[in-house]
Structure formats: C-alpha cells, structure tokens
C-alpha cells in the first residue's frame, strides 16, 4: 500500500511489526480520537447540571427513542463485520451490499439524531440556551459528524469498488473503514450511557 517506499522486491508488505502501515496508522488515529472524545465528554460531565433558566436533561431526553437509535447504530457494526468478511473473501457483491446496509443504518441513526435535535430545540434547548445545551450539542454533534463522515466513506467506498476496477488490497481498505466505524459505535455506547442513562 502506501509504504511503497519500502524495497520494491518485498512489494511493500513487510514491516517491522507485521502490521500494515495503514492499519497501524488507523489505530494510532483512533487512539488520538479517544482523547478528543474524552475532552468533550469531560466538558459535558462538568456542565451537565448547569442549565441556567433552560430545560434540564430530564426534561428533553427521550430515552426510549434514543435506545432504539443506539440499537440501530449497534446493528450497523454487525453489518460492517459482514462487509469486512465479504471483502476478505474477495466477494465484491457482498462487500458493496453490506457496506450499503451499514451506511443506510448509519444514515438512519443520524436522521434520528437530527430529529432529536430539532425536537429539543423546539422544547427550548438551543445551542446557546445554557451550558448544558452548549456541551450537549457539541458532544453529540461531534459524534454525529464522525458518523456522517463514516457514512460518506462507506457510500464512496461502494462507488469506488463499483466504478473503478482497480487491483489492490480492497479488503484492507474495507477493514480500515470498519475500524473507524466500530470506533464511532463504541464511542456512542459511552456517550449514550454517560449522557442519557446516568441522571445528572
């Protein structure tokens, strides 16, 4: 892959750790992302009770709905696993199918989040209403952006696989996107637990 700088005779697959450069790079990136979400989650945890004159968390959260949408997101992790498996079997049809399904589930989740935000806004929790509002929208918004980027990656990957008949390690690219996707899911589990389930 990208480490073509390595001696060509080895075709760029030998590395000191045995892990490909791209995969190691993705793991490091995700490690860094943990701290990003760590910072945002801490900010939220500090400010969750500072509602000023605005609504409190308990006023605006719709836990049954968010549980369902969390479940939808979790299911997308499952389909992502299927996509990676198909890619490793060099099954293009299966790969694109499961990637599409993953993307659709992800889009459903983001649709749910957009609904949730609109509903909360109507109930009086704007971005600038209170510290709780600012911190909540920033945290969940960052996560939503991450999911959206993931969906765009998934859909583009489908298009790339379909349109360009390029040889190469497709399985690894799918796996990389998969790593990212699982990470985003796991972060949501943490956010869902800390933000929605534990009362302020």
């Amino acid at each position: 892959m990208a480490d073509t700088a390595v001696h060509h005779a080895e075709h760029g697959h030998h590395t000191s750790t045995g892990l490909s450069n791209n995969k190691l790079g993705m793991w490091l990136f995700l490690g860094s992302e943990c701290l990003l979400f760590g910072g945002l989650i801490s900010t939220y945890m500090i400010y969750r009770g500072r509602v000023g004159e605005g609504p409190r968390p308990g006023n605006v959260f719709d836990i049954p709905f968010t549980s369902v949408s969390s479940f939808v997101l979790l299911m997308s992790s499952l389909t992502m696993v299927l996509a990676v498996a198909a890619a490793q079997k060099r099954d293009d049809r299966g790969t694109t199918l499961w990637l599409t399904v993953t993307g659709l589930l992800g889009a459903t989740f983001v649709g749910g989040q957009m609904y949730e935000f609109t509903a909360m806004y109507n109930e009086g929790l704007g971005y600038t209403t209170s510290l709780f509002g600012s911190a909540f929208y920033t945290l969940t918004g960052f996560h939503g952006v991450h999911v959206t980027v993931g969906i765009i990656m998934l859909f583009s990957l489908v298009a790339i696989i379909k349109r360009s008949n390029v040889p190469g390690d497709k399985a690894e690219v799918v796996e990389l996107v998969g790593l990212y996707w699982h990470f985003v899911d796991i972060v949501w589990i943490i956010i869902f637990t800390l933000v929605y389930l534990i009362p302020a």
Binding site: M1, A2, N21, N22, M26, P167, G168, D169, V173
Partner: peptide, 9 residues
C-alpha cells in the same frame, strides 16, 4: 508500477 486502491498515505 503499483496501482492500488485508495492508499491513505
């Protein structure tokens, strides 16, 4: 030449 899909680097 190495023609590969979507290398990151």
């Amino acid at each position: 030449g190495t023609k590969e899909l979507a290398p990151l680097g």
